Simulated scan of single mutants.
Amino acid sequence: MNTFNFVNPLIPILKPEDNIAKATALLDDQVLNQLPVVHEGQFQGFITSDMLFDDLFDHSTVGEYQLNPNQCIVYSNQHFYEVVKAFSDCDFNMLALVDENQEYLGAFDAQDLLNAFSKTTAVQSPGSIIEISIKQIDYSLAEITRLIESDGVKIMGCFLQSDAIDSNLIRLTLKLDRKDASRTVATLERFSYNVVSLFQEASVASYDKERLDALLRYLDI
Rank of each mutant, 00 (worst) to 15 (best):
F6L: 07
S206R: 11
L67D: 12
E17G: 07
M156P: 01
Q34C: 15
E210A: 06
A164I: 15
E64M: 10
Q30K: 14
S49V: 14
H79E: 13
V31L: 08
D50P: 01
I137D: 13
F57W: 12
L35G: 05
K22M: 09
I132Y: 09
L67K: 07
Q136I: 14
D180W: 06
A205G: 03
F159R: 06
F87R: 01
S192A: 10
E100N: 09
N33M: 05
L56G: 03
M94R: 05
E143A: 09
I20E: 04
K135Y: 12
Y65W: 07
Y75E: 08
E189N: 10
Q111F: 06
F87N: 03
F191Q: 03
S203L: 02
A107W: 02
F92L: 15
I137P: 00
L113W: 03
S118V: 00
Q111I: 14
Q161E: 09
C158W: 01
A122C: 06
I20T: 04
C158E: 09
Y65T: 10
S133G: 06
E210Y: 05
L169C: 00
N194F: 11
D177F: 00
E149H: 05
K175T: 07
N8R: 11
N19E: 11
S192F: 12
H79R: 15
D54H: 06
N77Y: 13
I132N: 10
V185I: 15
F117Y: 13
S206V: 15
Q102E: 02
L176V: 02
F80T: 09
I73P: 10
V98S: 00
S203H: 01
L97S: 07
D18E: 07
F6E: 00
L215Y: 11
D208I: 08
I165F: 11
R217M: 05
A122L: 04
E210N: 05
K135W: 14
E103V: 13
D166G: 03
N19L: 04
L26E: 15
A110V: 07
N168D: 11
D112G: 02
L174A: 00
E131L: 03
L67I: 07
K179F: 05
G106R: 08
R178M: 14
I144Y: 04
Q30G: 00
Y193C: 07
I20Y: 00
P12G: 06
V37Q: 03
L174K: 02
L147F: 01
F4R: 10
S197E: 09
T120Y: 04
F46A: 06
T145C: 09
S88N: 07
L188N: 04
V195K: 08
